[in-house]
């Protein structure tokens, strides 16, 4: 074992840690913004509204993230119209492709999580809101969405961890995230085991922090579900 190799390259790993956190949090935030309107459309009883969203989530939940990233990063360059468009400087970059791919992927998963939570809204709550004279928009804003977010919290916590695990795909397409940094150290020094083990430790650290954050969030938002302490 050559742990000094890992210690010598701590800056590379730290940079990777930062990149991973950046990509995961940015795509989670953007994905959530995308998922809120989509989940409302998805739970609509109008088929013309819900069907396109269903197709979107069906595609992104039914195919591997790696393939989606390949499709965007290596695939789009196949079309001359894309290469000549003003978007090419963005779509040429691995970093943007990863961010777009991650956002669409987590957006699809979160859409379905939120849809389940929206549809689980007790009907009495909606009836009560209507009886109080709230408009549809007000009902969503005041009654349905706050309850749905609360119900979605445990599943969302899992999705955050899955997104973190999925983000290693960025390292596959040359981005220097934690996995990418470990790969680079390995290429420089030929120490698979030590560099990957260091990466594993860093990922575990992040997962530990995420679970802590969600435990606290759940104890706050699910306070009404806690067993009563005398």
């Amino acid at each position: 074992m050559h742990w000094d190799v890992v210690l010598d390259n701590w800056q590379l790993l730290l940079q990777g840690l930062w990149t991973t956190i950046l990509y995961v949090s940015a795509s989670l935030a953007l994905g959530l913004i995308l998922a809120i309107p989509l989940s409302i459309l998805r739970s609509s009883s109008n088929r013309f509204l819900s069907w396109p969203v269903w197709a979107f989530t069906y595609f992104f939940r039914g195919t591997p993230l790696l393939v989606q990233i390949y499709l965007i990063y290596y695939g789009l360059g196949q079309f001359e119209s894309v290469r000549e468009s003003f978007l090419w400087p963005v779509l040429r970059e691995a970093s943007w492709c990863a961010l777009i791919g991650f956002t669409l992927n987590t957006g699809a998963y979160v859409t379905e999580i939120l849809r389940g939570a929206i549809q689980a809204t007790p009907y009495g709550e909606i009836e009560a809101a209507t009886a109080c004279g709230m408009s549809r928009a007000q009902t969503y804003h005041r009654i349905i969405m706050p309850g749905a977010f609360r119900r979605a919290l445990p599943a969302y916590g899992n999705e955050v961890i899955f997104m973190l695990h999925g983000s290693v795909v960025a390292g596959v397409i040359t981005i220097l995230d934690i996995y990418g940094a470990a790969k680079k150290i390995n290429a420089l020094t030929y120490t698979y085991f030590e560099s990957m083990l260091a990466a594993a430790v860093l990922y575990m650290l992040i997962v530990y922090l995420i679970t802590r954050v969600f435990k606290r969030a759940e104890s706050r938002w699910h306070a009404h579900l806690r067993p009563r302490t005398e």
């Binding site: 961890i161 390292g171 596959v172 996995y179 698979y192 085991f193 990957m196 594993a200 990922y203």
Partner: peptide, 21 residues
């Protein structure tokens, strides 16, 4: 706990190369 903490690809690489060694 270990498995849920570490991404698949990292664990795969460790098992693939590490297991060999």
């Amino acid at each position: 706990t270990l498995v849920r903490g570490v991404p698949d690809l990292v664990l795969m690489t460790i098992i693939f190369f590490g297991g060999q060694i």
